[in-house]
Amino acid sequence: MAGATITHAVHNRLAINRLGLWLFIISESFLFSVLLSSRYFLQGVRRPEEVNQPLGLAISIVLLLSSLTAYRGEMAAAYGEQRRFRQNILFTIGLASLFLVGVGIEWKEAFHFFPPSSGYGTLFFTLTGVHAFHVLTGILALLVVFFLGRDGRFTKGNYWGVEGVVKYWHFVDVAWVFIYPTLYLVS
């Protein structure tokens, strides 16, 4: 009887954690939705010719690849494969950093062709800037998970920390799936 009560309480805790995170993700998606809609409201579908489309595709692929490694890291943690978990989280951090380098290159070019003072520049730098900030916070969270994992804090039955951070990371990826065509492809 007592065992059943404890199991039920534990399940509720996990369900509440997940629900809380999803509510946070939904609230974040409103922020990105507003920023994305502002692009169409202020600029329509106009886009400067100088936008570096191949670089946009390259950094999109890097971010998608980081989602795969994050997923593999979470699955490895779920099945108690500690080494594999840490490796994949480390790959994710590396790919995320590479994405930020790509955004940096893009910004350097963008400053020249459509500076933040121009209409498109305002939208471009706001959208990519807000997203890059999320990437940066995601990297910090992944680093925390990596170091906690190295200390053996996550086990087969207890890896909510990994699951939560990886879910957030996937959300950052989902946001980019919409930002990429909006800024680089629509014309």
Binding site: V10, R13, Y71, M75, A76, Y79, N158
Partner: peptide, 23 residues
């Protein structure tokens, strides 16, 4: 209280999950 879960998890199951990720 930590959020824990129950149920055995096998290696072939993990392999299937990894393949799903690749797909």
């Amino acid at each position: 209280m930590r959020a824990q879960r129950s149920g055995p998890k096998s290696k072939p199951e993990l392999g299937a999950k990894m393949r799903l990720g690749l797909v």
